[in-house]
Design a protein around this nucleic acid. Structure first.
Lengths: 255, 255
DNA sequence: TACAAATTGTGGAAGTTTGCACAACTTTGG
DNA sequence: CCAAAGTTGTGCAAACTTCCACAATTTGTA
């Protein structure tokens, strides 16, 4: 049963990475009783799925929240997302109250804010966002309650919505898997509910999406475009979408 | 100002490790414009303080929750804590509802439960605990709301207490910085409030402490010994403490 | 059973990192 | 202003990792 053994090994590697942020190829090879080359191939396979990162001499844990829920590997667009996140961070003024959604692009925003922001109050349902912001001591970070979802490293559910409804924010920053002329779309219903609540509790909302989300229509519509104050993205949207955004009075900020 | 530059570099390294779990010596050297040897010396210094881990080719982030809040370096007792955590995991039966406190020992418990536990519902205020449990798909994990504290990777405050008060659990598992004949003691008042609430909302509480906590009296007493169902630890407590535990009808489980 | 596919091991050249000793440089405190 | 302490750079050999192609082995299936 080679297949099983291989899967076991790869599972063990991921397991190990949950406890220690770095594993060494040579150690693993010794532990599994296989050649280093085999371990290297395992690591490469897992790396291709975005479940860990290669590092000289072994592998490192994938950054929290960067794990794609379905296995779509967006590794190629990592730079775009980082640019979008940094760009969105420029929209924030000291002292504001923000709501930040869970997602890899909003995670990049958090990283940017942690460096540049000052005296912010931030409500989020994302552990990755909270952790990223945590190193800035001028921030007041409030984490929402809810049911913890491992793959997204975030909380969802009625407790989350109820909690968010009790707060008001200057701005909300949310991501989504799709953006069409009809509005913001996403596939995860629990996440949609959180996004919708954040949008409603904030004075203005910015959507953070890279160009691969343009004209992607998914099962649920979060809100129509008119609920947005702006979109932060990396490319000019296609004509029809751009027109729709214009009509809805949504500002487009290119990173 | 060599000293300042050095500190800056080391801060940058830790900052970088918050974003990526692994950094490479050669990359850092290039970025800082210093020799790799200098970076290696920085890494070694930080490693000595337990702020990161050395890895072949560079450094890896210290495991989450393992960062000592005050700088006390408990690196030596890591194995003890792991044993205690695993031992405590044996006390849990499938289907139970648990409350788990934030702390490095309870984090070890979470790692153990994630492997062995089944169908548990767990409430916690610790992001590290939630994340560790997250990979077991039979669990229902509920994260508490509250003010996020970076160093502990946990939430505290009135929102946390209020939320916890609305739930009841079969068992609570908590850690503490001190255990005396008078009761459980700790230095962090916000954490004390959370521990106390968990103890009160649970049918029975187990305290997880290693032997270095015996007879340590800190500023705040969480609860008297009589509130405990058991103590999971790695060594027999000294005579007086053992007697007190006996009188309070507290079971001692040695890992 | 036997063949095809998948998985794993081997060996060696090329490239990286490590650890160390010593020199050069910078800062600190008289 | 000088000496001592601290910090950083350099050079090099040893150790380790990577990458590649091909062979050996195991597994799944016709």
């Amino acid at each position: 049963m080679t297949r099983l053994r291989k899967r076991d090994r790869q599972e063990q590697i991921l397991l190990e990475l949950r406890q220690h942020p770095h594993v060494r190829t040579s150690d693993l090879a010794l532990r599994f009783g296989v050649s280093t080359e085999t371990v290297r191939r395992d690591v490469e396979a897992l790396s291709g799925k975005g479940l860990l990162r290669r590092a000289y001499g072994g592998a490192a844990a994938a950054p929290m929240g960067a794990q794609p829920p379905f296995g779509e590997r967006d590794l190629a667009r990592i730079d775009e997302r980082a640019r979008i996140g940094r760009s969105a961070a420029e929209l924030v003024r000291p002292g504001e109250v923000l709501m930040i959604d869970a997602g890899s692009t909003t995670h990049q925003l958090a990283l940017g804010l942690a460096e540049r922001g000052r005296d912010l109050t931030i409500l989020t349902n994302s552990l990755a966002v909270a952790t990223a912001l945590g190193r800035n001591k001028t921030f007041h970070i409030v984490l929402c309650p809810g049911d913890f979802m491992g793959p997204e490293a975030a909380v969802y559910g009625p407790e989350t919505l109820d909690f968010l409804s009790r707060y008001n924010a200057n701005r909300a920053f949310i991501g989504s898997s799709g953006l069409t002329a009809k509005g913001i779309t996403d596939a995860n219903l629990a996440a949609v509910a959180v996004k919708r609540t954040m949008i409603r509790q904030a004075r203005g909302t910015f959507l953070l999406v890279d160009h691969s989300k343009f004209d992607v229509e998914l099962v649920a519509t979060v809100e129509p475009l008119s609920m947005l104050q702006g979109v932060v993205t990396d490319m000019q949207p296609p004509f029809l979408l751009r027109e729709a955004l214009h009509r809805a009075n949504v500002r487009i900020k290119l990173a």
